[in-house]
Amino acid sequence: MPMKVRLTFKKTDEAVFISHLDISRLFVRALNRAGIKVKYTQGFNPHAYIVFGVPLSLGYESICERVDFEVVSNETPQEIIERLNRAMPGGIEITECLEPQKKFKEIGFARWEITAEKDGPISDEEIERMRELFSSDEIIITRETKRTKGEVNLIEKSRGIEVGREGENAVKITAALSSRPEDVLNPEYVVRAACEKLGMEFYDVFYRRIEFFDENMEIFR
């Protein structure tokens, strides 16, 4: 019996440098290596029918990437996870294999963990000011995409932004940001807001996507 599955996988370490386009090619090969047969598209040039969730920018980590396909061979979910993990290059690891509950277009938010590091120690006062900033009702930022440029309210596009200390030099910001297919907010804007509004400067910033949610902030599966 063909079985629709949705995998959750991690993209960490060196794999953060693999682009979204290369990831899909890589999955096809990994499935082949693992001997897992999936449904193919019809037509002149058939290829494996594999659909990914929201793309991840180059350099960002994630522990919650999602990919859907239909398995036509007879592996159990556990077998799929084990065999695929043996066939994956370093930095990619499958953690879950479930039947899809919702459609990708129902994704509403993604939670991010942003570690922003300063050149030197960060003061408690600076952290406090960041907390204040992100608990206000409105932070207007200029958003530029390939096609459009416009002003948006960062707070309206988020569900909770928390700020905490991370060692001597860094802050950790946890933010649930809009990830609706037509309105994906890059977590970069959170850091940019702190820089622009508070005049802060960071030496190194590290982004990690940790979970997807629907409009009602229920975990997206």
């Binding site: 440098f17 066939a87 290059p89």
Partner: peptide, 9 residues
């Protein structure tokens, strides 16, 4: 950047 990283299968 993946050009410089390796750790391919």
């Amino acid at each position: 950047p993946a050009r410089y990283i390796g750790n391919e299968l």
